[in-house]
Structure formats: structure tokens, C-alpha cells
Nucleic acid binder design. Structure first.
Length: 920
RNA sequence: GCCCGGGUGGUGAAAUCGGUAGACACGCGGGACUUAAAAUCCCGUGGCCAGGAAUGGCUGUACGGGUUCGAUUCCCGUCCCGGGCACCA
């Protein structure tokens, strides 16, 4: 009986669908397990073999957990709003909704062929109004809240208003923008607009002026992780800095919690490090310097992590965008300062990057007084100081900071070394080590002692205080685009106002063209009557990460119209136990989603403070592209082994024309008209191609479509082969030539049931050898799956099946458990064999066989033996022996006696399971 | 520049609380079956050396040191590759 995988796979996929095999419901009698894939953006190109890697791994784990008796939630959906569909719409006039639906259908078709065990009844699409209702809802919740630092959580903004009525804002400790201090009386006197402006500074979703990454090519702002080296990730257009009024989320208020809660997560250290880096906690002090422009004197606050170096301050620097610039520029310096500001504003991010090490700056004309030494130092303005970090102003210590050093050298400012014996004639001494000098009361201390001592002194004298800064910025939440969630915000009298949660969803309006308007407004401004109760509605839309921030919650209760997720559903499913996806979301989606979850947690809508307990980043599958070598100015191609003798050009060739690095010469001639008359210089009678590991891409003709692999080998082979390729988290090239090995294995397994002499599965009791082969596999599979070491599990299957084949095993008691073990990896063939063994129920409901230690305990172990200090040989003894038994065996062993050459054994020391020491 | 990973056959890779390095698979070589091919099955396969052969010896996990009876594994230094951050005071 042949292994007809296409028929088998179709049959079981239909069976699972019609029996709703993978549909789940809350079931308090069973433990829950939630396995989630990062949902895909459905692009027009469809899936290539790299995309399903993580999905296959999560599917194997889900099926494995089901076998163990868990109630497994394993859903899938689509991150359906986004730029490519809109760019396509601009080019073709086709509505993004249509393109998106088409792409989703294609993705679904491709995924279905691989035999995933998703509960499709829970599918979500972020562009569906029933879904984005809850994205908008969460936004309004954030709009309606402020962050209370006292209680360290989000609170309703009404409470804050009531408090302003009673006591003003002096006692309020909130994460907020810059606000003046006011009393209750003053608050009552403010007009409506003024009050709204003040409240806006406190809201968690707020509107604020900020410098953004503006991408003229796309006509929108972009988040930091949507920009790479000054170009947009999508489309590759240049990006520049621009000040704009934007909706933002106060993610920075959660910085400390986002950082400390990382501890308990089962994420890789590298990923945690990336997040820690992104959050960028740094401990230091804020210090006040008196600054004067000759007319007026102010208190200017700066932030430093090196309070110990105050004695070495020789100048101060302001960011060009700092509010101090205006106050501290003296009339005689005005012209020079303005010229500098104009220059720096003109520069794009890209240009600033290109001149990274070029030092620029301008003197403001003002001076500051060092609070510890009383000395007078100049105040400069320079691009290397960032407005968005700390206070936008620094004290410069050129002797011990390389950036200050470069600046001092360029503008010829003094450099005062503060550490004994350090040489600052060529470069600064940045290390935090050594003994302090030239530093008054700090002299003689080590740097590590001096830092806290300096801060203590500063605090005691009222010059400053300890302070922790974060580089995590608030998330910019507006996009000047069409294909995203509309903001449920309108502007009566110019005041941003919620349209009311009861009116959600606010649906995306139809427009005739997807471009910005002639006067530069976002596309939504084209919509007819885009107003609410006569007031204009917000015209920007939400960014891509809005819809993906809480989708894992929606899967728990996807059809609920009254809540994002009901309390019961949330309390049952809680959070994601295993999350699998690419590392490209390490700082964008994963920070935003954690923030979003924490906000909902503060408000009591969800019961877990972290969304994703365990996270695995699957590696990328790269392409393996092939080359031919054309001799320059000819139409002759030379085989890779001979190319060094010629001057050649490397040309990518379609990998479907290449088999095992050998070129299909006729196919190549037919491939492109220009190669019709191609000549070849062969080696050993064939044309061999060169190859390289590159990104899998159309332009390098290295894309492998999973559908084709399924046609030729079947889904089970695809699934096992992708796992067999190498460790899950590692990037590795796809190479179709190894797939035969896995396919052969499945055929062998099939044959083991049917082709072995006669067709008969017997109820005979299995032999010890058969049981041992099975139980070794059970042991290995359980251990490996828990460690996500799927590649070695596949090897273990091959070994076990090889052993059983050698034993001509056809015992039901062995074959049944074998099918169960295989079912997470190759579910179709496992189901088919299971049913052919006489079972009516799908294998999904079978229990997972427990590891029976009795059969593997017989495994022998190797004991290295040493005597009188030297190791000489190894002896082989059963693992199950106690140390006393080992000793007896050693004393009785003939080989040992021979090695010892007649020496009498005085003592035998056994390190359990490891080593034997013989004292003679 | 800073922070993480990682360097093992022709290839993808196994093996790390230190214990026979290269499991499993691809590829390659040889053989069986076949008129032939495909498919299938069997044997061999890190390198070097000796032998007619079974076999034996040496060497070998990027490089150089160290700890240890014993190091792919632990420590120090160097080189290379991949990823992340990048004027964050």
C-alpha cells in the first residue's frame, strides 16, 4: 500500500474541520494552556516556507499539550491594517479592504494545507469594525485616565478634576507634561479651553507637540522602530525630523514597571536585554546651576550620572530645541545662535547620522556658576545634547566624557582632570575607576565612593537630588493615513473630546482617493461630513501597533459585543503561556502590548499584569540562492569549479532550474530569451552552480512556496523537515535537498505498518527490545519538546523507527503509542495510521503515554576508571547499579584486573554515575 | 563605540551541572536488485600515517594560553561572523 500523502492530508483536514476538532471553550475541569503565534500581516506575496516555521512549532506544542490533557487555546488572526495595502490602493485605486480580504484568503488557504490545529472560530482581523471597536475603546479609556505616581497606577481623570477643584495641583504627583502649579481658586477661574489644555497634559492618551520622524514619501509620521538608518522600513523613503502636534501614549509612565516585571518572564536573555536597553534606566542626580545672561539670573536643572565630576565642569551645553536657548542667548550672540538653530533644524536625521563625529555648537553668551566651586563657566548650544532626554541641558566634564572632550578640543575649552594619574592629553578618561583629585572634599575617594558622596552633599545643601531617568519615550500614536483605526475624538470649539464609548465603533469612512488632501491634511479629511454632532472629527488614524496590542485578549472572547473580554473568559485563560514570533517585534509590539496590558490591569479589566509568560523567537529561514557565471561580454557560462580561470559575472538563477547544485541546462536556455543560445563550459559533464545564503526573495529567485512542497512531499514532510532543519531559534537556510531524508522516514513508517512481510497488526505482547525502543523515544520526546528542541526529536523518531523496523515489529502495543507520539509532528499520517489500527475517534483525544523508566534504566553508562591518580580506561556498566554494586563489579572484572597488572585493589571510590577511583 | 549571541566534517547539525566528539540527515564513494533507468535496500565516509587484511597509531571542536587525571564544555587573551543599540550625559 503506497503512502498517498495528498489524499490522506485532504481527508484529515476535512475531518478536523467538519468535526470542529480544535474548537475550545472555557472548561474549568481542565487546566488551560494558551499558545499564540504573532499574527501575520497578510501581504500580497503570500507565504514562503520561512513564514510557517514558528506556526509549525507552536502547532506541535499545542497538539502535545492537548495530548497531555490541557485545554489548549490556539487561535490565529490577521494584523490587517497597514501601509502596503494603502500604498497599493494609492497606485491602483483599489480599496485596501478588498486587497486585504484577498490576501487573507490566500494566507488561509496556504495555512490550511499545513494542517494547523487553530480554532478558527476565534479568528480576529484588526480591520473589522467589531474588532477595532475595542482598540478605540482602549484608547478612550487611556484618554480618560491619568497616571498617579503615588499609587503607581492609572486612575480616572474625573478624580483628578475633582482634586483640582479642591486643592489645585500642587499636591498631585503624576506622570505628566509640563504644567504650571495652580491653586483650587485659580483652577476654578480658568476657562474651559485652559482647563482642557491642562488636563491634556495629564492624560495617558494625550495630544502633544513633539519631534517626530516625518516621512514625506509616505506622507506620515513613523515610530522609531519603523525607521532604519534614516529610511522608512516600509518603502525605504527618507525620513526627517519635524515638530508636530500628535496623539501619544504615556508609555514612559510605566517605564519602571515594564523594566522590573521583565524579571519573572521566561524570555530569552537577549530579548530581555533589548527591552532593558530600550527602556534605558539610568541612575543619577538632578542638579541646579545658576545661569545668567547678564540681565537676569535663573535656576537651571541638569541631569548627570557622574555627580562626582562636578569639580571638572568647564562649560554647560543646551540642546538646540531647549526652552533655555531663548532665555540665555545674549543680544550680541543672537545672530550666530539663530544661524546655528536654522542649520540644525534643516538637517534630516540621516544627515545628522552621517556626520556623527562632526562636532558643532555655538556659544550663547551666558554663563553658569558651578554650585560647588563657584567658578563661572560658559553656556553653549550643541546638537549632541538631546532635548528629549533628561532636562535637555548638561554640565560638561571634558576630562571624563568623550563627547564633552571632543567638544572642548574643537572649541578650545579647558579640561580639568579629576582622577589621579589619568592622562587626558589625547582622549578623555571615561572609566568609573581611580582615585579622585582636584575635587575638594571628594579627594582621595574612589570614583565608586565619590558618586554617592557627591550626591549626598548636593542633597544636603539643597543643590539637587537623586533622580532616575529613562530613555523610553512616549509612543507617538497618530498616523496621517487612511487604512487604520479612526480616533473616536471630535473637536467642539477646538477641544479634543471623546465621542463616547457607547458610540463605538467609529467606522472608517469611504473616500474617493487615498492620498493626502491638496493642503496636506490626512486622507480622512476627504471624507464627506467627517463630523460628530457638528464638530470636526480627528483626521489621523492609529498606527499599526494599535490593533496588535490587545489581540491576545480578544481571542479569549472574540464575539463579545459588551466587553473586550469578559471577566469569566479572562479569569479562565488569563494570559498567553507560550508566545512564538519573530525578534523584529522585540521593542515595538512587545513593549506596547505590555504597556497596554498593564493599563488594562490598572483599570481592573484584566487579571494578569503581564501578557506573555514565555516567549520564543523563531529564527529566520533564509534563502539559498544559486549562481551561474557568465564570462564577460559573451553568452558562455562556466561551471563554478572552473570559474577562477575566467573573468566572469555572477548571475542569480531560478532555484527551480537547479537540483543538487546542478543546472538544468535546457531549462536554463528556455528560462529567458537572452539565454536561448547560451553555451556552457562543464566540469565532469555537468554544470555546477555556486550558491549563497541570502534573504529569501523574489529578486534572487530563491523563494520556496510551501504549497509546492506540500504537493510534492506532503504537509507532514514539510512540518517535520522545517523542524529537522536546526534549532528553532536559529536562523538557517532553506535547502530543499535534505527534505528527502524526512520523506523517506515517513514512508518507512508507513511501510512498518503495512509492507512488512504480511499485512497484520498483532495483539501479541511486545518484546523487551521493542518496548525499549519505544520508551527511549517517549523519554526523549518529552524532554525535547519541553526544551523546544524539535530537531533532535525528529532524529529520535528516525532512530526509534529504524530499530523497530529491524525488529520487524508489528505489535499493536508498540504501534499505537508510536502514532500518538508522532501526531504533534506529522498529524495527518498519524491520524490515518491510528484509524487503520481500528480506532474511530481522532487521535487528539488519546492520552499521552507516560515515560516508563524501567525500559531505559537498563541503559549502560560508561565509567572512566582512574587509579593512583591516572585515568587509564573506561568500563561499561548498567546505569541502575548502586555504588556498592559498581564496586563489586569492578573488583570482579577481568579486564580491570588485567589493566591493573596484578596490583591489589585497596579501595574503590564511586562518584555516582560518573567516575571510579581505584586506590591500589 | 557599547550590549547580547555564536565559531564543531563537503553540508544542516548532535553531544555542555567537564567523562569514548561528529548522533540523525543530506551529499559523496562502493555494492545488491534490474536488459536499463528510477525507486528501494546494504556497506563505507573528519584528517593523516602504517598494514594484505581484520586492525592499530597520531591528530582533530576558530586561534593562543590556563585550571583539571580528563576541556567542544570552565577561566583569561586574540581573531572572525550574526543580531541589537548608537551622541541617552
Amino acid at each position: 500500500m503506497a503512502y498517498n500523502f495528498n489524499e490522506i492530508e485532504k481527508k484529515w483536514q476535512a475531518y478536523w474541520a467538519s468535526h470542529h476538532t480544535f474548537q475550545v471553550d472555557s472548561d474549568p475541569s481542565k487546566p488551560k494552556y494558551y499558545v499564540l503565534d504573532m499574527f501575520p500581516y497578510p501581504s500580497g506575496a503570500g507565504l514562503h516556507v520561512g513564514h510557517p516555521l514558528g506556526y509549525i512549532a507552536s502547532d506541535i506544542y499545542s497538539r502535545y499539550k492537548r495530548l497531555q490533557g490541557f485545554n489548549v487555546l490556539h487561535p490565529m488572526g490577521y494584523d490587517a491594517f497597514g501601509l502596503p495595502a494603502e500604498q497599493y490602493a494609492i497606485q491602483t485605486g483599489k480599496h485596501p479592504a478588498g486587497t486585504t480580504a484577498t490576501n487573507i484568503a490566500r494566507y488561509r488557504g496556504q495555512m490550511d494545507r499545513i494542517g494547523f490545529s487553530y480554532d478558527w472560530s476565534r479568528e480576529v482581523r484588526t480591520c473589522d469594525p467589531k474588532y477595532y471597536k475595542w482598540t478605540q475603546w482602549a484608547f478612550l479609556e487611556m484618554f480618560g485616565c491619568w497616571y498617579d505616581r503615588e499609587r503607581d497606577c492609572a486612575r480616572p481623570i474625573d478624580e483628578l478634576e475633582a482634586r483640582f477643584e479642591k486643592e489645585g495641583n500642587a499636591t498631585v504627583n503624576a506622570a505628566c507634561g509640563t504644567v504650571e502649579t495652580f491653586t483650587a481658586e485659580q483652577w476654578k477661574g480658568f476657562d474651559k479651553k485652559h482647563k482642557a489644555d491642562i488636563l491634556m497634559q495629564y492624560r495617558i492618551a494625550y495630544q502633544g507637540e513633539t519631534t517626530v520622524n516625518w516621512c514625506p514619501g509616505l506622507g506620515t509620521v513613523l515610530a522609531n522602530d519603523e525607521v532604519k538608518e534614516g529610511f522608512s522600513v516600509r518603502g525605504g523613503f527618507p525620513v526627517e525630523q519635524k515638530k508636530m502636534l500628535q496623539w501619544q501614549l504615556r508609555v514612559s509612565a510605566y517605564a519602571e514597571r515594564l523594566l522590573s516585571d521583565l524579571e519573572d518572564l521566561e524570555w530569552s536573555d537577549s530579548l530581555k536585554d533589548m527591552q532593558r536597553n530600550w527602556i534605558g534606566r539610568s541612575q543619577g542626580a538632578e542638579m541646579v546651576f545658576k545661569v545668567s545672561n547678564g540681565v537676569e539670573t535663573y535656576d537651571m536643572t541638569i541631569f548627570t550620572t557622574r555627580a562626582d565630576t562636578v569639580f571638572g565642569v568647564t562649560f554647560m551645553v543646551l540642546a538646540p530645541e531647549s526652552q533655555w536657548v531663548e532665555k540665555l542667548t545674549t543680544p550680541d550672540r543672537k545672530e550666530a545662535v539663530e544661524a546655528y538653530l536654522k542649520e540644525s533644524r534643516k538637517k534630516t536625521e540621516r544627515e545628522r547620522m552621517a556626520e556623527t563625529r562632526k562636532v558643532t555648537g555655538v556659544f550663547s553668551g551666558s554663563y553658569a556658576i558651578n554650585p560647588l566651586t563657584g567658578s563661572k563657566v560658559p553656556v553653549w548650544i550643541a546638537e549632541y545634547v538631546l532635548a528629549g532626554y533628561g532636562t535637555g541641558a548638561i554640565m560638561a566634564v571634558p576630562a571624563h566624557d568623550s563627547r564633552d572632550y571632543a567638544f572642548a578640543k574643537t572649541f578650545d575649552l579647558p579640561i580639568i582632570p579629576l582622577i589621579e594619574g589619568c592622562d587626558v592629553s589625547q582622549e578623555s578618561f571615561d572609566a568609573k575607576e581611580g582615585i579622585m583629585c582636584n575635587s575638594g572634599f571628594l579627594n582621595g575617594m574612589t570614583v565608586k565612593e565619590a558618586i554617592p558622596a557627591a550626591i549626598d552633599y548636593v542633597e544636603a545643601h539643597g543643590i539637587g537630588h537623586r533622580k532616575i531617568n529613562y530613555r523610553l519615550r512616549d509612543a507617538i500614536f497618530s498616523r496621517q493615513r487612511y487604512w487604520g483605526e479612526p480616533f473616536p475624538i471630535c473637536y467642539p470649539d477646538g477641544i479634543a473630546t471623546s465621542i463616547g464609548e457607547e458610540n463605538l465603533p467609529l467606522e472608517l469612512p469611504e473616500i474617493d482617493k487615498f492620498l493626502p488632501t491638496e493642503n496636506g491634511e490626512p486622507p480622512l479629511a476627504r471624507a464627506k461630513d467627517w463630523t460628530w454632532d457638528g464638530a470636526p472629527l480627528e483626521t489621523s488614524t492609529m498606527p499599526g501597533f494599535a490593533g496588535s496590542s490587545a489581540y491576545y485578549l480578544r481571542y479569549m472572547d472574540p464575539h463579545n459585543d459588551n466587553a473586550l473580554v469578559s471577566r469569566e473568559a479572562n479569569e479562565y485563560w488569563r494570559n498567553v503561556d507560550l508566545y512564538i514570533g519573530g525578534t523584529e517585534h522585540a521593542t515595538g509590539h512587545l513593549i506596547c502590548s505590555r504597556f497596554w496590558n498593564k493599563f488594562l490591569y490598572d483599570r481592573g479589566y484584566v487579571c494578569e499584569k503581564e501578557p506573555f509568560r514565555k516567549l520564543i523567537n523563531q529564527g529566520m529561514i533564509q534563502g539559498r540562492s544559486s549562481f551561474v557565471y557568465r564570462i564577460k561580454n559573451t553568452n558562455t557560462f562556466v561551471s563554478v569549479g572552473l570559474k577562477d580561470g575566467y573573468d566572469t559575472t555572477e548571475i542569480h538563477v531560478d532555484i527551480s532550474l537547479v537540483d543538487n547544485d546542478r543546472l538544468d541546462v535546457e531549462g536554463f536556455r528556455a528560462w529567458r530569451p537572452e539565454f536561448k543560445d547560451a553555451e556552457f563550459i562543464l566540469e565532469d559533464g555537468e554544470y555546477r552552480c555556486g550558491w549563497a545564503v541570502e534573504k529569501m526573495s523574489k529578486s534572487m529567485f530563491s523563494v520556496v512556496n510551501p504549497d509546492q512542497v506540500c504537493d510534492r512531499y506532503g504537509a507532514d514532510t514539510l512540518r517535520m523537515y522545517e523542524m529537522f532543519l536546526g534549532p528553532l531559534e536559529q536562523s538557517k537556510p532553506w535547502d530543499t535537498k535534505g527534505i528527502d531524508g524526512v520523506h523517506r522516514f515517513l514512508r518507512k513508517l508507513w511501510g512498518l505498518h503495512f509492507d512488512r512481510d504480511t499485512f497484520c497488526v498483532s495483539d501479541e505482547a511486545p518484546t523487551a527490545a521493542e518496548l525499549k525502543a519505544l520508551h527511549k523515544l517517549i523519554h526523549k520526546e518529552q524532554e525535547d519538546i519541553e526544551n523546544f528542541s524539535f530537531n533532535t526529536t525528529v532524529s529520535a523518531f528516525m532512530i526509534a523507527v529504524g530499530e523497530l523496523a529491524d525488529l520487524h515489529c508489528n505489535k499493536r502495543a508498540i504501534l499505537e503509542p508510536l502514532d500518538i507520539l508522532l501526531s504533534p509532528f506529522a498529524p495527518h499520517i498519524a491520524e490515518e495510521l491510528w484509524s487503520l489500527l481500528g480506532h474511530k475517534e481522532s487521535i487528539t483525544f488519546a492520552h499521552f503515554p507516560e515515560y516508563n523508566a524501567a525500559y531505559t534504566a537498563e541503559d549502560n553508562v560508561k565509567y572512566p576508571v582512574q587509579f593512583n591518580g591516572k585515568m587509564r580506561f573506561v568500563i561499561d556498566l548498567p546505569k541502575s547499579m548502586t555504588p556498592a554494586e559498581v564496586e563489586a563489579a569492578v573488583r570482579a572484572d577481568e579486564n580491570t584486573a588485567r589493566y591493573l597488572q596484578g596490583a591489589a585493589i585497596r579501595r574503590v571510590i564511586v562518584v555516582p554515575g560518573k567516575i571510579i577511583n581505584i586506590v591500589c
